[in-house]
Design a protein around this nucleic acid. Structure first.
Length: 477
DNA sequence: TGAAATGTTGGGGCG
DNA sequence: ACGCCCCAACATTTC
């Protein structure tokens, strides 16, 4: 056991990271138990090896930190810099006996945290990290042969569900004495997370940020949308999904709370299906931990030989929602306008980029990273590799979504598509997902000139499908 | 957490 | 009445 250099020092630093909440925050609870807490947040983007935060994520982070600061009676201490140096500085200027945080799992953070831990121990400061954002930490779940699972269902059913139950919920700290670092000149605004162009003001219409909003969203979901979830989650117009993803990413709510709250519900298909979606998040973190190259390297090496296209115009059309395929365009515009895209449409738009435009999944990864308020390294990497077919337990390469069929099936009344692609709003259901098949008469009545008001398809569905199958074949031989 | 091509079946029209 | 063909409707296979 290590004996702190200054065991009589009263303060514990609690380092907030992707756990921007008070309730069920294990590290914070433990820190508060042993005395007064200096709550800190460190903006370290300029000191990272890679992985810049996306614009939409920065918008969310700004508001989440602002909310957290209010919850802490304006005592949140915000810094800019390299975490090791910032923490060192605080310890040099305050009587600090310990530093606590909850663990993160991005590969570069794992490396940096290990270094920080060693440095703190060397200088005699107690240092503890906790798990507060995963139901099962990646290193606790392995196959019988001690290697990691590579198939989701086996991971979840045989790995997670048969190992220990997720820990119980942690109450709010009973006594939370907060210390403000008055020597610190940095404020939230100094982090400049919002930038100078107010492009993100549109996001404010769609989201309430912060711990309280996350709690409310969980309750609303349970009361209104859990029943029927398994089926309704496929229909983007139904708003039947939880939309908890950004809250989970920033740790405004813990997966443990979701798990235990659902545990009290009657067992049914819908409940188990929702829990299995939560488990997909666990699986993504699991893969990222065991395969740290997941964000950039094809998990299946056959894909390294795949003949991707290079076409800036096609990419631009996809990004802006001007592909000429209405369900794809609706999804891409939902993303741009709201910082979010319904899961069903993510799969359709993702499949379209990779399998119809034949553009590298890295382009999709990067655009989503910048635009999504729920951008998350584990989920984004694992999901794009899944869509591309290059991933672990991925969609087989020949599974190519047809955006016409998918639109007709999952947005049968066109409510979702018409909302985000209003120029098609007068087009009858029959042609909504294939306007190029409508007669001149029908187009005229709908006040659409194809190629002017709405694009003609940027690729031919049938030909591009054939091209993709051929390309995958050459890549795989 | 696909789609398209191909195969099979069975009812009905018709010579 | 019977066989033949057509073609939904469904099932299976292939990509």
């Amino acid at each position: 056991m290590h004996i702190p250099l200054n065991p009589n020092a009263p303060y514990t630093i609690f380092w907030f990271r992707q756990d921007l909440r008070i309730f069920d925050n294990l590290g914070l609870f433990e820190a508060a138990k042993i005395g007064p807490v200096i709550p800190i947040y460190i903006w370290d983007e300029d000191h990272r090896p890679d992985s810049k935060t996306g614009a939409a994520s920065k918008w969310w982070l700004h508001h989440s930190l602002n909310y957290l600061n209010h919850s802490l009676d304006n005592n949140l201490n915000v810094y800019k810099g390299l975490p090791q140096e910032v923490i060192n500085h605080i310890i040099n200027t305050h009587p600090v006996k310990a530093v606590y945080w909850n663990r993160c799992y991005e590969p570069w953070r794992v490396t940096e945290d290990a270094k920080t831990k060693i440095l703190l121990k060397e200088r005699g400061t107690e240092c503890k990290s906790f798990n507060s954002s995963l139901l099962w930490e990646p290193f606790t779940i392995l196959k019988a042969d001690k290697t990691p699972y590579k198939v989701y269902s086996a991971f979840y059913q045989n790995g997670c569900l048969k190992s220990s139950k997720p820990r119980e919920l942690i109450p709010r700290p009973e006594k939370l004495i907060l210390i403000k670092d008055h020597s610190n000149p940095t404020t939230l605004d100094h982090l400049n997370l919002l930038g100078s162009i107010p492009w993100h003001s549109k996001l404010e219409h769609h989201w309430d940020v912060g711990e309280k909003a996350a709690q409310k969203k969980l309750m609303t979901f349970l009361n209104s949308n859990l029943k029927g979830y398994k089926e309704n989650r496929n229909y983007p117009a139904m708003k039947a999904v939880s939309r908890l993803s950004p809250h989970l990413h920033f740790g405004e709510i813990s997966p443990h709370q979701i798990w235990h709250t659902l545990d009290q519900e009657e067992t049914c298909q819908d409940k188990n299906h929702f829990l299995s979606e939560i488990a997909w998040r666990e699986f993504s973190y699991y893969l990222l931990y065991h395969f740290p190259t997941l964000p950039y390297k094809n998990f299946r090496p056959q894909f390294d030989r795949f003949p991707w296209e290079k076409n800036a115009l096609l990419l631009k059309a996809w990004q802006k929602g001007k592909t000429g395929y209405p369900i794809v365009d609706a999804g891409m515009r939902e993303l741009w306008q709201t910082g979010y895209m319904h899961n069903r449409v993510r799969m359709i738009a993702g499949s379209f980029l990779v399998k119809n435009l034949l553009l590298h999944w890295h382009h999709g990864r990067d655009w989503f990273w910048d635009c999504l308020v729920d951008a998350d390294l584990a989920n984004n990497s694992a999901s794009w590799q899944w869509v591309a077919g290059s991933g672990v337990d991925a969609a087989p390469y020949f599974r190519i979504f047809n955006p016409v069929t998918q639109g007709e099936k999952f947005d049968p009344t066109g409510l979702y598509t018409r909302h985000f692609v209003p120029e098609l709003s007068k087009l009858p259901d029959q042609y909504l997902f294939k306007p190029w098949e409508a007669s001149p008469e029908i187009l005229k009545n709908a006040r659409i000139i194809l190629g002017k008001d709405y694009p003609t398809p940027i690729v031919d569905m049938k030909k591009s499908r054939q091209a993709a199958l051929a390309a995958y074949k050459t890549g795989h031989t």
